[in-house]
Design a protein around this nucleic acid. Structure first.
Length: 221
DNA sequence: TGCCAGGCCGGGT
DNA sequence: ACCCGGCATGGC
């Protein structure tokens, strides 16, 4: 039961890693960029986020400190390609302001609190939900918290490892019980799930040739 | 050509 | 405690 699910989770990692190799996530050059990208990619394809990141970089505003001091309208215009840009401009400013005021702009102070304290604090920032918080903690802070996103759910659902009604915490706990507590492993696994989701879960027909097709699954889920 | 993407929030039941 | 609409651009 739970034992079997854990084995499947570990087996799936091996299959995905064999198929795709190391992903080297998060795609960012600095820790600030991880936080920025984590907000920008909310319900948005990474492709559109890349444009926004590029615009921020070209405008020399790709740090939390510069974002905090950019007028909301100006910021919204720069990140327009990421969709829901006025909402995200506000969220970026809220996050940047919070890091400055609460930690004097030093992310080390946030991450030094460790889990679960840093997570609980992050979740109080408006615009930061569970996935965004976990992405920040894992990829910028190197803290072992598993990131659960829409692809993760879809893949696990398809392989009967979760129920449709399972919440974020339940899915996360499944991974964290099945795997050794290693941030690099969590990070690699999440990236692999996104990759397999993008390539094989969008169209039902592709499901057949997915690296995970040898595991029990249902393409209709 | 609609539908959806690496969510989150607020209001209504 | 769930459920739903809003946010919004660009790609397939």
């Amino acid at each position: 039961m739970a034992r079997r699910a854990a084995q499947t989770i570990r087996r799936a990692y091996d299959l995905l890693f064999a198929a795709f190799g190391p992903q080297g996530w998060w795609p960012a050059e600095t820790r600030d960029e991880v936080l920025i990208g984590a907000v920008l990619t909310q319900n948005t394809s990474w492709k559109n986020v890349e444009r926004a990141i590029r615009a921020l970089r070209d405008a020399d505003r790709i740090t939390l400190d510069r974002i905090r001091r950019t007028p909301p309208d100006r910021l919204a215009t720069l990140i327009r390609s990421s969709g829901t840009h006025r909402v995200k401009a506000g969220r970026l400013r809220a996050l940047a302001t919070w890091v400055e005021e609460r930690f004097a702009g030093d992310l080390d102070r946030l991450f030094a609190a460790g889990l679960p304290a840093a997570r609980q604090e992050l979740l109080r920032v408006p615009g930061v939900g569970p996935e965004t918080a976990d992405a920040i903690l894992l990829y910028a802070g190197n803290l072992p918290t598993f990131v659960v996103d829409a692809y993760t759910r879809r893949v696990l659902r398809r392989h009967h490892l979760i129920a449709a009604s399972d919440g974020y915490g339940a899915v996360q706990a499944l991974f964290e019980r099945a795997l050794p507590t290693v941030p690099a492993l969590y990070g690699e696994y999440h990236a692999l799930l996104v990759e397999v989701g993008k390539q094989y879960c969008r169209k039902r027909a592709r499901c057949r040739t997915c690296p995970l097709a040898t595991l029990p699954h249902d393409p209709d889920l």
